[in-house]
């Protein structure tokens, strides 16, 4: 496990010996085996690795959706691992945005209302229209999910995630269900968010080419970090091959 990073801004996440085990005895699955990691604020981070290597588990713990079996995880100065359920909810509400492979939009709300769902409860949200403009969908604000393509739905999901101006944006396979052109458009939105808003973005993906966009690429294997690579020459979304 090597951290080849040079002097970075202060970390937004810091984990120590983070371990996650599902089940007990011989049937136990070790999803994370003592991960030590710092994620600097404002970076675009890509987590790569085969299925079951632990990358999603890490994302879930950092996102406040799951708890580790052992070890600690800090968000800035706050220890996530000791938080109560209500505190985790508040943490997600105030600091975290999520984007999943299957969009998870509310079918009964149109694009704008889906975004407003978040802006209504966030502390310092951007305007819903502005968030949709950011993903290029301000013209389709009144369309329901059933009237939007997969890529458009995913962009609404991103708009919804960033509208609260989260500190971190977690994306689990955000392009997994999309074709290349649409996938590229979605990645473009994510890099824009990272650059324009300064949001830390962490993406879990199978698509190795996504790594070309990243400041930092973390390779996972068998529940641990195999290597962390700092990307000196980032490409833009338009430049990557699919």
């Amino acid at each position: 496990m090597t951290d080849t990073s040079a002097a970075s801004p202060r970390p937004v996440f810091c984990t120590k010996a983070l371990t996650k085990t599902y089940g007990e005895g011989p049937a136990a699955v070790h999803a994370l085996r003592g991960v030590d990691l710092d994620i600097p604020e404002g970076e675009f981070v890509v987590l790569l690795g085969p299925s079951g290597s632990g990358k999603s588990t890490l994302l879930n713990i950092l996102g406040g959706l799951d708890r580790p079996s052992a070890g600690t995880a800090h968000f800035k100065d706050v220890e996530l691992t000791g938080m109560s359920d209500a505190e985790l909810t508040k943490y997600r509400r105030d600091h975290v945005g999520f984007v999943f492979q299957f969009y998870n939009l509310m079918p009964s709300l149109n694009a704008r209302e889906n975004v407003e769902l978040v802006t209504e409860i966030a502390k310092t949200p951007m305007d819903a229209k502005e968030a949709l403009a950011l993903v290029g969908l301000d013209k389709r604000a009144h369309h329901f999910p059933s009237e939007l393509s997969g890529g458009e739905q995913q962009r609404v999901a991103i708009a919804r995630a960033v509208a609260k101006r989260p500190t971190v944006l977690f994306c689990d396979e955000p392009t997994g269900a999309l074709d290349s052109a649409t996938g590229r458009a979605v990645l473009k939105v994510l890099t824009d968010v990272n650059q324009q808003l300064g949001t830390t973005v962490m993406i879990v993906t199978h698509a190795a080419n996504t790594a070309m966009l990243a400041d930092r690429v973390i390779h996972f294997a068998d529940g641990g970090i195999r290597e962390v690579i700092r990307n000196r020459e980032k490409l833009t979304a338009e430049q990557i091959d699919w």
Binding site: G63, D85, T89, R92, R93, N104, M106, P107, V118, K164
Partner: peptide
């Protein structure tokens, strides 16, 4: 949908 709301930070 309900899980999504929870993930977004809606309380129980």
């Amino acid at each position: 949908d309900l899980a999504s709301l929870r993930v977004m930070g809606f309380s129980r």
